[in-house]
Amino acid sequence: MKACEKLLGLCPEILTAWNYRRETIEARTGDAATTSEGGDEGEGEGEGDWWSDELRVSETALRNNPKSYPSWYHRKWVLRRMIEAFGTEEGKARETLEREAKLCADMLNADDRNFHCWAYRRFVAEKLGRGVDEELQYTLTKIENNFSNYSAWHYRSAILESRGAADAETLEREFELASNAFYTEPEDQSAWMYHRWLTSRARAIEDAKDRESLLERERQTCREVSDLEPTCKWPLLALASLGDEHPREMFQNLAALDPARGGYYRERRSE
């Protein structure tokens, strides 16, 4: 296991070495992860806490290569076994989960777009039973730090989706958040992508009055952004999604502003 640890320290991508670790642990612990049965060849001081070794090895590997699929999976596997053994309410698994949440926060501070870490964090948050509001707040903090963080916008959309149909009030708040990004840097696409999704949700609002007032407000915002940055394609594109009265003209402009995607605009125009 020591040699294996060294190898993974050098190259965390070697799946077989992770498998070897898991096989060894399964052989030692049997079905119950709580008991440590024999085979302690001088490693793993604390009896039965094989997981701290595993988490350490995987952490070293991740510090080395934060995008290593097998290293992340190994962590998840360890956690799953701990949860099977201890449950998530309190005790060892719970403590570990809390520590894992901190590790994720650390790693997302270092690279806020690491999708492996975001996925693992989602797993940890779910096991910890973190609420929707807490998670929304976390994405907000990440977005406020760097609103080009598409990963955080994505997660925000996923949380809101999981909560079911978005109401006019929520959408209004989200539109407002996105518009801060447009005004700050209208060329940044993250918030515009999010905006397109918000628009599709807003169009599904049943109350016609609520729907129209929300869409109209957004049309005004986009017109204002467009007035501030006439050569920026994004507000025009958003206006098209929001149902501007002259879509054909709009796509004509867009094709001129953004010739690389001319094929797309021409196709939309002919719809």
Partner: peptide, 20 residues
């Protein structure tokens, strides 16, 4: 910086754009 500008609720949209 852009993060501050984004967060600043005291700035109007136009001010954000002009400053950035």
């Amino acid at each position: 910086n852009r993060s501050d500008v984004f967060k600043d609720r005291g700035l109007s949209g136009g001010e954000k754009r002009a400053l950035m």
